[in-house]
């Protein structure tokens, strides 16, 4: 069954500085929606607003046309990978996979380097290894949608390619909202690509739009 996440009517300002004002995007099962934007344009804020962890004056977040205000209370609907490490350092790989109800053997087949680390707490992992576990857990989580904030940062290129394959496979079952400054990967993955600029979302149609909207110099 296909599901739909629609976001609009968001208004966010810090003091007199307007951050988000004219937002619309839609993400459906089978879609990867990319969001690109310069630093400080409000990409992470937008994700936190969708998740419900950042309160705003007005917003409309709809899952299959039903408004949800506190999406963080519904991990069956949406999960969120923040841009920082969020898994408690004391937890082991086995415990994390058990908590998320995921198959650890499948993970170890994709990332065999972790075989000797399955029983170690992740405080003993490198920053990149921790990020791999976090990105994998959220991509594979059993929700209808997942939001990924900078999933490719701190991860080496060969692992990024693995994650791109995993995302392409997983999107058959769910929808993804992704933002990252490694924009070529986002452009490559996205079915719908939005640019966030001066508080507004622009749906891009071709890669030249990225230049027109001032995000890159091609």
């Amino acid at each position: 069954m296909n599901h739909k996440l629609e976001v609009d009517g968001i208004f966010l300002e810090f003091g007199n500085r307007k951050i988000l004002s004219d937002i619309y995007f839609k993400c459906e099962t089978g879609n990867i929606c990319g969001i690109l934007g310069r630093n400080g344009q409000g990409k992470s804020c937008l994700m936190n607003i969708v998740y419900g962890s950042l309160k705003v004056e007005s917003k409309s977040i709809r899952f299959d046309n039903n408004s949800i205000f506190k999406a963080y209370k519904r991990p069956d609907l949406i999960t969120y990978l923040p841009q920082f490490n969020f898994i408690p350092k004391s937890l082991t790989l086995k415990r994390i996979f058990s908590d998320f109800d995921l198959d650890i053997t499948e993970f170890l087949e994709s990332f065999p380097d972790f075989k000797i680390k399955a029983k170690q707490p992740i405080r003993e992992f490198s920053g990149g290894q921790r990020r791999i576990v976090e990105v994998y857990a959220i991509i594979k989580s059993k929700s209808l949608f997942s939001m990924l904030d900078e999933p490719f940062s701190h991860i080496m290129p060969i692992q990024i390619e693995k994650f791109k394959q995993i995302l392409k496979k997983e999107k058959e079952k769910k929808g993804f909202l992704i933002t990252d400054h490694m924009y070529r990967h986002i452009v490559d993955l996205s079915d719908n690509l939005y640019i966030l600029k001066e508080g507004k979302t622009y749906l891009t149609k071709e890669s030249e739009d990225l230049q027109t909207l001032g995000y890159v110099k091609l």
Binding site: P75, D76, T79, Y80, P82, F86, P88, D99, A137, S141
Partner: peptide
């Protein structure tokens, strides 16, 4: 505070 996201992702 960052670790709260772990638990929220688990409901």
């Amino acid at each position: 505070s960052k670790e709260i996201y772990y638990y929220q992702n688990l409901g």
